[in-house]
Structures are given as C-alpha cells and as structure tokens.
Nucleic acid binder design. Structure first.
Length: 268
DNA sequence: GGAAAGGCAACTTTTACGTCA
DNA sequence: CTTGACGTAAAAGTTGCCTTT
C-alpha cells in the first residue's frame, strides 16, 4: 500500500489535519449517510481538535493529534483514547481500524518511546478480566439490555467505559442469538432426518402394497366395504387374515364396518 | 409531518490467543 | 525451543432501521 510501495518514500507526510477527514476514505456504501447525518459524537471533536498542519508519518494523523493532545493537554490515557476514537465518528470509517499491526511495528523504529507507547495502546484491544466477564455475565443474566443508568453504574463498577459495556452487551446478545439459532438448526435437522426416514418407510410400504395388489387380484373382486383399516396400526383387516398374519396386510375374518366415531381405536 | 438523536440488530473488521506442523 | 501459518473468540467499528422527542 501507499507507504511501503512508494518508490522513493521518505516516510514523512505533510498534511492538513481536519477532524472529520480520515486518511482512509469512508466506505462506498451509502455515502449520503456521511453527508446528511454527521454523527453527534463528532461535535466535541471539532471543539477539541483545531485544524492543524502536521508533518508526520503517513496514515495516522489522528494518532498524532491525540498523542500530542495527550502529552500537552493533561488528559488521561483513557480520555485520549476516547478522544481519538470519537475523532473517527461512529458513522464514519474508523481511523483506528486502519492500523495494520505490521505497518505500525515497522514504523515504531522511527517513533519516540512515548509515541510507540501511544501507538501500542491504541492498537491494543481490551481483553476483559475474568472478574469483569463474570460480573457482566451476572448482569446479563438479570437483564439482557441496559438502560443508561445501569450502563453507567456497571461501567463504573467494572472500571470500563460505558461504550465498552454497551458493546459487550450487544455482542453478548448476538452470541446468544447465534447459539439459539444453532440449537434450532440442529433440531430442524433432526426433524428433517426423521421425516425423511418416515417418508422412505411409507414409500416402501406403498411399493409393497402395490406389489401385493398385483399378486392378489382377490382384493379387486371384493367390495371395498369388506376391507377395514386399523386406525392405530394402520393395517388392513379383512377375510383370511389368519393365513397372512405375518403380512401387514390382512383381511378380517368377517366383513365388518369400522366406525371412526363410535370406535376410534378398537381395531386391534 | 419531519428532523434530530439515540438505541439496537446485523454485519464486518481487527486483534488476541491457542494450536500445530 | 522457536516460528509462522491458521483458526477461533471476542472487542470494536459500520450501517440501517426504528422509536422517541
């Protein structure tokens, strides 16, 4: 990409830093969103970051802006990260995500130790501790969504930013749903298998019936009313069942009518 | 009615981490 | 033992839709 591929790269970039301008352009989808709906989070950015002319490394004006803000402004690291992340508004392409670790590591040789620390801090992704995860899980069990007050309280309790708590809950809900979908999928697969087996069995039975019908034309000569079918085992009853007792199809010794209404399950 | 703001779901990207050759 | 490729889980970003004000 740009930096590494450039034939005569000095590693320096002269740029005019404006808060809303990311070095990587917004993604193509729905550009109108960026034009029509500036994020509310971008407002403090404009107040915090004045337009500035910077001489620096390509691809990370925000990093430098925040780093300098962090050094000079007396903000905590957390605040610096927040400012940095707010600089890339929630509805715009992320400047943070343009950090490819390979690129940063390569450039780290050229950075001061403070800048390296800052870059690493910004690149580093939070891993929740067991205690934090446990408390979040516990809280999720009680309610899978949080109101702003609960979010604030939980964030304070966990020493996290409210946004992190919010993200955790969003991801947790998504995982729950995914898991449920997998369970449903497995259940439906089993149902499908069962029905396929049943269908196969019925097809086979139908084939046998057809074969029997051809080999025993007697059925054809009998009035339909002399044949009965048991509603529970679905076997045909009729004359001469003794001789064919092993066959699923038999005839009742005496013709009889089966009444579904008065005797719904009395055939066997 | 329409604009702004906020929340959430769905989807995507990025990073950390474990495993294995 | 080290290293790099690979897969996976999870944190975080993006976008669209909906509701509320």
């Amino acid at each position: 990409m740009g930096f590494d591929d450039h034939p005569c790269n000095t590693g320096l970039v002269l740029g005019l830093g404006l808060p809303q301008e990311s070095t990587s352009p917004p993604k193509a989808h729905n550009p109108s969103r960026f034009a029509n709906k500036p994020s509310p989070n971008s407002a403090p950015t404009s107040a915090t970051f004045e337009p500035s002319l910077t001489l620096g490394l390509p691809g990370e004006p925000y990093h430098q802006l925040v780093a300098s803000n962090y050094k000079g402004g007396g903000n905590s690291h957390e605040e610096a990260i927040d400012l940095y992340r707010q600089a890339s508004s929630p509805h715009s392409h992320s400047a943070v995500s343009s950090f490819s670790s390979g690129r940063v590591v390569k450039r780290e040789r050229d950075l001061s130790s403070e800048e390296v620390e800052m870059a690493l801090m910004l690149r580093k992704k939070l891993r929740l501790t067991k205690e934090q995860s446990a408390l979040l899980e516990e809280s999720f069990k009680q309610h899978s969504t949080l109101n702003p007050k609960q979010k604030q309280a939980l964030a304070r309790q966990l020493n996290l930013r409210p946004r992190q708590v919010e993200v955790w809950f969003q991801n947790r809900r998504a995982r729950t749903k995914l898991k449920q979908t997998e369970v449903d999928c497995e259940f439906l697969k089993k149902c499908c298998e069962t029905l396929t087996d049943e269908n196969r069995r019925l097809q086979k039975e139908l084939q046998e019936l057809k074969a029997l019908k051809l080999s025993q034309p007697l059925y054809m000569h009998m009035p339909a009313a002399t044949l009965t079918m048991c509603p529970s085992c679905e076997r045909i009853g009729g004359v001469g069942s003794e001789g064919a007792s092993k066959s699923p199809f038999s005839m009742a010794p005496k013709p009889h009518f089966y009444n579904h209404f008065t005797n719904p399950s009395a055939a066997c």
